[in-house]
Design a protein around this nucleic acid. Sequence first.
DNA 1: GAAAATAATATGTCTGCACATAATATTCCT
DNA 2: AGGAATATTATGTGCAGACATATTATTTTC
Lengths: 235, 235
Amino acid sequence: MHGDLPGSPTTWQAIRDVMMRRIRTRAYTPGSLIPNEAELAAEFGCARATVNRALQDLAASGFLDRRRKAGTRVMEAPRRKATLDIPLIRNEVEARGQDYEYRPLLREIAPPPGPVAARLHLSGGETMLHVQSLHLADGAPHMFEDRWIVVDTVPAITGADLTRLSPNEWLVRESPYTHGTMEFQAVAAGAAAGPLACAPTDPVLSILRITWMHEAAITHVQEYFTPAFRMGLEL
Amino acid sequence: MHGDLPGSPTTWQAIRDVMMRRIRTRAYTPGSLIPNEAELAAEFGCARATVNRALQDLAASGFLDRRRKAGTRVMEAPRRKATLDIPLIRNEVEARGQDYEYRPLLREIAPPPGPVAARLHLSGGETMLHVQSLHLADGAPHMFEDRWIVVDTVPAITGADLTRLSPNEWLVRESPYTHGTMEFQAVAAGAAAGPLACAPTDPVLSILRITWMHEAAITHVQEYFTPAFRMGLEL
DNA sequence: GAAAATAATATGTCTGCACATAATATTCCT
DNA sequence: AGGAATATTATGTGCAGACATATTATTTTC
């Protein structure tokens, strides 16, 4: 039951990779106990701490379930975690080798509409900055953004020059957030049809994002992507 | 510059949390260098290895950028990684406290249509198992699934009883995969309208998933969620 | 026989030390 | 001055040992 590591260096990453392969190839079957740290350390010829580091990494990624005394077992249904990174639109577009352009469409101070106020836990009487803008890739509409920003939480936003920098880029730089939520859904383009240059009934991918600084809401953005857009990720 | 840890235990997680707070509150500003490991270890009154473990974790999460000799700096634009976990539909439905039901609609052996063959790098002459099924939550249609399985890669699938177990659950249990891709898009319900009990023109969220065992394709699934469905995640 | 105390076990983590590695700064030579 | 060799520095990682902690198994007690 040896022969897995010819002359390999015993780094914790190497051990993690070997263990990962054993899980994927079902040398260790889902739900089963794997050898304990001491045994693996003996097998790999390294210290227990090294094995520990490797197994912790796999547990953090959701492939192993570890409990003291109970031992380490392979997750039954590997809670597949896809790490979806949310780049700035600019970076996303430029990463594809396309030209990025940002075009502000609207900027006004207004009270929030009911649904927005509700989701941000606001009374509705607050002063908010309402911004609509279009992001283009190689000159073609790529994403239309409808954003509400809570001025009380981010007072500096009123003085920001949003004619060249998108509000998202400004917020990322200037305003940290403690947590947030995101929702994907498919909707008819509706009011976004104009900016996106598509039919109002075309299905478009929409992302609703809300961020918070502790209990204070920062912003509420609804993004509408062009109909052809697909958001891809690796497993 | 002290007073951050009153009588706290110096575990690497505690240190990570303190550092995370400093990053979020901009005590350490984006792009700036943070104190080196030895200095932090002195501040927290612990060993350098403990600080190292904490900083490694933050670097893995994308908040810090570490380079030998150059030191550790706060990431400019924290490449926000949302961890989207992809549960089995059954678990997802049951987690919401709803009743889950699976209903097989079609099962046939057939050659793959052009687009499917192309995405799976097949010639088109292969034997494939084609399965369509509906997943229900509290009796209402929740997701319609159109799946093609490469029989050569997973021969055992032909003998599987897919009348009660969904092909996804069977594959998760019986067939490991090395990698895969996933794509979100908004489409008109079209042929999925019947099973989902909606209009063919209704926009629905669709996920295309393809998994591989090394170079051999395993399966190609197109999932169509009910129009009201929103896929939510935390930031 | 059931409940409580005790032991055993596997993981969790810290420490102090050593050496490796990458990147930068400095010195030295021509 | 220019370039090569060398030193310095911060992180990366390993090791052995120790103790902490959670959980299960066993034994004792009533």
